[in-house]
Design a protein around this nucleic acid. Structure first.
Lengths: 216, 216, 216, 216
DNA sequence: CATGAATGAGCGTTCATTCAT
DNA sequence: AATGAATGAACGCTCATTCAT
């Protein structure tokens, strides 16, 4: 669905969607390499396969492109996460499997994550809030899963803390790759983080690891 | 000590140090608000209390300012951390106290931390490596403390993982303030993170919390 | 033909040629008056009839403009010289007529010549060599003509010397105008220089001057 | 003698002279390499062996330095030429010997000559006129010698032309070195130019070359 | 007399954005 | 709907000149 936050002078919704996908793909590659500010609109147009004039038929300002990129990242993450999250009668195993899915997703989306971390500040206050809202919604999903699956009663603030810890541990796999990716693979990283998570929750690992995971 | 990585055309070392401190202070305030790229050298000069010409007597390029800022952040953190870290016969209590000191430091340095996260990419590859080296050295300090104080034998990769988790949990207090600082104060945040850390290490909290902390 | 040494971001070759001619014309007028260094790119843009942004669509650096000017001067001189030079069965009369044509051309192009003399040093080493090559090619044309038309056998080094003398005598009409243009017109200057040239070659003037010149 | 055209805030005439000589020496070396505009006053101060503040005690503007350099060049040439010029009962041999002396001087002063050609335009109109006056005076010296020594009656305009030809032939040895200094040494160059000069004057070489020259 | 830190006008260059075709 | 030439505000940086010490 077209991000209605960004206006276009073109009418054909299908075309808008198509062109914007081209733009996002081109922009992510460029932002990853040079960052938002060092990337010019001309470069984005070229990488997207059309002219600077055409680019401006589908956005109003350069910031719109960054917004489109950020929005698209969250959309992708959201779709993938919803597929991995069980919402009813969740067990600790469900939680662990969701965490694993999230970590593997973060591995796939390292570049996008780094972009989010580095360029979010370049968005307008308004757009930042929109994006933060999306991040909060995702954390809430995780909180619900923790809450549902927790073996014992946890304080809501503790649930929130654990959810946030998991979230940034997933993201840090990407933005601290220079620190982590010599000692770990995504598989071993995931396994050990899950291990400490369980320990933190006071769950014996044996209880959970009985049946294997998709991700190990 | 003057950062010898950045050359100045002024000879008086004392003056260089003084002027650069002015620059760093001014630049941090501006970078925090608008980011590195949106801040102009003229604005930095003005915020530092001198003219654009004088600014360039103490640096060669705008990037030098960012480097000076990053370098100064690490220098400050390092000095403070070294004071908080026990290096001999460390106990779990020592570790916890060091973690608390680190979290409170991160609370003080929120703006600087956010700048580091967002602008490090704007440094030259060379300067990035220099800064990463400093970050790695600090993580190593923490690893040593964990290793020394651990109640049981831990794998070195696990030690590294725990150290990194602690590190980014401290940093995340700043860069995810919009998420955390409604539900927590730095004190409660620190307490709960320490709680889960101990749980992860398999240490009973009662054993440790007996004598109160400076930070609670 | 567009000077392929200088790149442009505009694609239309015809337009490039047109805009560059405007630039050259404007730049020559300004360089003549204030020299290359004292002329700003904004002034050149204005004198060319377009904005500073447009100027930079057709060049990459200010030095490119100087190169374009120098290149264009040589191109013009070359075209004019080739038209004036006989290449087969040349007689002394042909040589004299070519020299006269050259002197009159130098009279027309005084400003350009002065610019070349004063600003060539401002070109990059690479561009200087390119321009020197062109100058050498032109001297060679003259050498050939001298060689062909000489009444007696001359040493090649003498031919080269004579050619160079003629060349700078033509140029000096422009760059020493404050010395020469009170006592001479271009016609009388040409006539006397030709006179001494013939004397130097050991040719009686009567033999040559029989049939009048276009230039007297 | 101190160039009274340039004012100094220092009183001690001896010191002024000393400092200015340092400046000229440093400046010539720099101008030769990078030209007047690309050379900074700081560089000149450094090359002169004192500070930028001191530099400005002995001149008022950067242009003053260029003027000092130009003036000094002419002063040197003048002194040397006056020594080489016979003013009474001059013969063709005297003329030839003076020309040879001039050519060898131009060989020595190539850098200075090139600077004069390229940077004179950077002087103020007033200073240019002053320098041109000096050049004219020198040409006049040569004209007088030609006039005195000429074997036959020459028109004054022809004398002027010949003097100018000699002058720029000497200078061209320096500013066209890339063209001439592969085929000639200063000795052979001088000899051949003298040869053609004599031919132009209608003098048989044998009459003159009888007794050898200091310069061959 | 000598120093060198301070100044700021002014330069070359970039690039987001527009709009006629 | 697509193009790309045109625009000019704004940036990073330089350097001649001054003046307090």
């Amino acid at each position: 669905m077209t991000s209605s936050k960004v206006t276009s002078s073109v009418k054909d919704e299908k075309l808008i969607q198509h062109r914007r996908n081209q733009m996002i793909k081109g922009a992510v590659a460029l932002f990853k390499e040079k960052g938002f500010h060092r990337t010019t609109t001309r470069e984005i147009a070229k990488a997207s396969g059309f002219s600077i004039g055409t680019l401006y038929e589908y956005i109003r300002t350069k910031e719109d492109i960054l917004f489109l990129v950020c929005d698209s990242i969250y959309e992708n993450v959201k779709v993938r996460m919803e597929a991995a999250f069980v919402t009813e009668n969740a067990t600790t195993e469900h939680l662990m499997e969701a965490v694993r899915a999230y970590f593997f997703l973060m591995d796939e989306m390292q570049n996008e994550v780094v972009i989010m971390y580095q360029e979010m500040k370049s968005l307008s206050k308004e757009a930042q809030e929109y994006v933060i809202k999306k991040e909060k919604a995702m954390v809430r999903m995780l909180e619900n899963l923790i809450s549902d699956s927790a073996p014992c009663q946890l304080k809501t603030s503790d649930i929130s803390l654990i959810a946030n810890n998991i979230f940034i541990q997933g993201q840090m796999w990407g933005f601290r790759r220079w620190m982590l990716q010599k000692d770990f693979t995504i598989t071993s990283y995931t396994e050990r983080q899950v291990h400490f998570l369980l320990a933190g929750l006071g769950v014996s690992e044996r209880q959970v690891a009985a049946n294997g995971s998709k991700y190990s």
